[in-house]
């Protein structure tokens, strides 16, 4: 618990963390404005709209949580603070576990920030348009969004623990999500293996917050797949961190 508290204090005492918080607020506002402003009058009356706003914003904030998770581990190696951290936490498996937990909590914190701005924007805007609020529908979206953002933060910390290089991990994660994995989707599609493509990391994360309900993989399957990727990254993180000499 002490170590976890120290990790949270580390996050709180860096300006970059607050920068990520501001970006989460901006994402929440932009997605809400886009979804409400871009929908027809009839769509706005659909109770699912409010759930969709939360889920759409959650995907953007999941990417942010992933990056924060990566940074909270790789910062240690980039700035040489890893030695001091491991002197306080000499059991490296525990170090990785605390970082994963911190990644999860950082994701949840970003989600809460996003939620505040969505709530304020949506309540005011929908109120002006006389659209009734649908808390039940929104609540369903909320849990799924929170789950996805927490997992994304955890996954980011595991990736950071496996890669250690900050630039390598950040660039690698973004290139994988937005370049390499889409290429994999196309290649697997050509081979008639679309079902496999839906279990890849970005696809399964996307499915967790998919508001259309499209795709062949059920939500539970996507959750299992993404948890599997977290497990793989965590095993790599533990092995890599245990073996590394801190010179």
């Amino acid at each position: 618990m002490r170590l976890f508290g120290a990790e949270l204090l580390k996050l709180r005492t860096l300006r970059s963390t607050w920068g990520f918080g501001l970006v989460a607020l901006a994402f929440g506002a932009l997605v809400t404005a886009g979804d409400i402003g871009g929908s027809t009058e009839l769509d706005r009356l659909d109770p699912e709209l409010q759930s969709r706003i939360v889920l759409d914003a959650a995907f953007a904030v999941s990417i942010l949580a992933l990056l924060v998770g990566i940074i909270l581990v790789t910062n240690e190696f980039r700035h040489g603070t890893i030695a001091r951290t491991l002197l306080a936490t000499p059991r490296r498996g525990r170090f990785v576990a605390v970082k994963l937990l911190t990644g999860a909590v950082a994701g949840a914190a970003l989600f809460l920030l996003m939620l505040v701005v969505i709530a304020v924007t949506a309540v005011i805007w929908l109120g002006i348009l006389d659209v009734p609020l649908a808390p039940g529908e929104a609540a369903d979206g909320l849990w799924r969004a929170l789950f996805a953002v927490v997992l994304a933060g955890t996954f980011g910390a595991a990736v950071g623990g496996a890669v250690h290089s900050q630039v390598g991990a950040l660039v690698g994660a973004l290139v994988w999500m937005f370049v390499l994995e889409p290429i994999c989707w196309v290649v697997l599609g050509l081979l008639d293996l679309d079902s496999i493509a839906e279990y890849l990391p970005a696809a399964s994360l996307g499915r967790l917050v998919d508001s259309d309900g499209g795709g062949d993989v059920p939500w539970l399957g996507a959750s299992g797949a993404f948890l599997g990727w977290i497990t793989v990254a965590t095993v790599l993180a533990v092995l890599r961190t245990r073996r590394r000499d801190i010179t």
Partner: peptide, 24 residues
């Protein structure tokens, strides 16, 4: 240690607060 081990963006006081918290 010979290499400096505090995050440059954190204040000296906060650096020590983190270590104190981690060390109980």
């Amino acid at each position: 240690l010979e290499t400096f081990d505090a995050h440059p963006g954190r204040s000296g006081r906060n650096h020590l607060r983190v270590l104190a918290l981690a060390g109980g």
